[in-house]
Amino acid sequence: MDTPDLQVRPDPADPRLTRRVTGLDHTGAEVETSVTMERPLTLYLNGQEIVTMMTILDRPEDLAVGYLLNQGMLRAEDRLTAVDYDDDLGVVVVRTEARTDFEEKLKKKTLTSGCAQGTAFGDLMEGFASVRLSTEVKLRTSDLYRLLHRINTIPSLYLEAGAIHGCALAAADQPLCYMEDVGRHNAVDKIAGWMFRAGVSGADKIFYTTGRLTSEMVIKTVRMGIPILLSRSGFTAWGVELAREANLTLIGRCKGKRFTVLAGEGRMVFDADPRYVEEESAKHWRKNSAEAE
């Protein structure tokens, strides 16, 4: 099958993203391996420091805008006047045409289950109940199997060094954008920021993540207006409950020909015979089983 032609893809050859480190293996023999780099990025909104997050720092502008959108500090109607990144200082500044209400957001915090920096400012559920996801979008299982195969064959930092999460935005069986980072919430925010800056709608899209299907993942996907969320990992009870409330199609445990749908089943079209679907390669199975959870 062809390698997907993504609009945004990882660059595992970027020397800033990994480092070679020597150590010992289980037999005591010396080994050399690649490890993922993480660096601090401090985010400012209109001159106000918001947060410092740990990230691989490959797409700081998208990460900054997506973080602010998913924390409710930016809204879809807000107009950006500048997004400036300084590599030497590790600082990104987002400027808007009109003043935002982020000061109020900073007064309230909700601790989420996201790995790494997992604090969501403000009311995590703000705007969630008012989102209406498209009910016309369908996901054919034949497209699902092709999509998973294409995502698994994308050259990635995950396969190069591990210790990282990946997220993809797709349409039918075609991945459009693939982002990686040390925390799954960072990878989600990068895609949200890219969608906002590129003017890409989520109404007919599919969101893929290597991470768990938690309440945070469901809320962010719904707020991006994406009707289908899938993962190779498992579910949390609140994630399932929120997905059913929002009519989000929630598909987990996607490994090879197997998957489980726990919400939004009406969008599924079972047109593929699993007997003729190839199992996932051992390389992806071992890595993902060991690290994705």
Score class of each variant (00 low, 15 high):
69 L>R: 10
291 E>T: 05
182 V>S: 01
248 L>W: 03
190 K>V: 08
196 F>P: 00
31 V>D: 08
1 M>R: 10
153 T>N: 09
236 T>N: 12
117 Q>I: 08
92 V>T: 02
259 F>P: 00
14 D>T: 06
183 G>Y: 02
5 D>V: 09
144 L>Y: 00
191 I>F: 14
252 G>H: 06
157 L>K: 06
46 N>F: 05
166 G>T: 09
121 F>A: 14
80 L>R: 01
36 T>N: 05
196 F>C: 00
114 G>F: 00
176 L>I: 12
72 G>E: 04
44 Y>T: 04
74 L>E: 02
260 T>F: 11
143 D>H: 11
266 G>W: 11
148 L>K: 10
38 E>D: 11
198 A>H: 09
101 D>H: 09
59 R>H: 14
244 R>N: 13
21 V>N: 09
232 R>F: 03
39 R>F: 04
191 I>P: 03
121 F>W: 13
63 L>Q: 11
144 L>F: 03
3 T>P: 10
83 V>H: 06
59 R>S: 12
160 E>K: 14
120 A>Y: 01
153 T>S: 10
238 W>R: 13
250 L>P: 01
26 H>C: 07
56 I>H: 08
57 L>W: 01
170 A>D: 09
105 K>C: 05
196 F>E: 04
125 M>Q: 08
34 S>P: 01
112 T>V: 10
67 Y>R: 10
204 D>K: 11
58 D>S: 12
91 V>Q: 07
199 G>Y: 13
129 A>N: 06
261 V>L: 11
285 W>D: 13
133 L>R: 06
26 H>W: 08
164 I>A: 06
93 V>L: 05
199 G>E: 10
5 D>K: 09
136 E>H: 09
34 S>F: 14
121 F>Q: 07
193 G>L: 07
186 N>K: 02
273 D>P: 00
181 D>Y: 08
48 Q>L: 04
18 T>Y: 13
172 A>S: 08
142 S>D: 05
204 D>N: 13
183 G>W: 03
250 L>K: 07
173 D>G: 07
8 V>F: 05
225 G>I: 00
238 W>K: 15
63 L>M: 08
57 L>P: 01
89 L>P: 04
253 R>W: 13
115 C>V: 13
110 T>A: 05
81 T>C: 01
129 A>E: 12
285 W>H: 10
283 K>M: 10
290 A>D: 15
160 E>N: 12
237 A>M: 13
105 K>E: 00
279 E>F: 01
213 L>N: 06
26 H>L: 14
265 E>A: 15
191 I>K: 03
276 Y>R: 15
239 G>V: 03
113 S>D: 13
192 A>Y: 07
25 D>V: 09
247 N>K: 13
32 E>W: 05
60 P>F: 01
172 A>Y: 03
265 E>M: 11
187 A>Y: 04
211 G>R: 02
36 T>W: 00
86 D>R: 05
173 D>W: 03
252 G>M: 08
246 A>W: 06
272 A>C: 14
209 T>F: 10
242 L>Y: 10
17 L>F: 12
51 V>W: 02
247 N>E: 14
191 I>S: 10
169 L>A: 03
166 G>S: 13
48 Q>D: 09
47 G>R: 07
151 I>P: 06
207 F>A: 03
83 V>C: 00
26 H>V: 14
143 D>W: 14
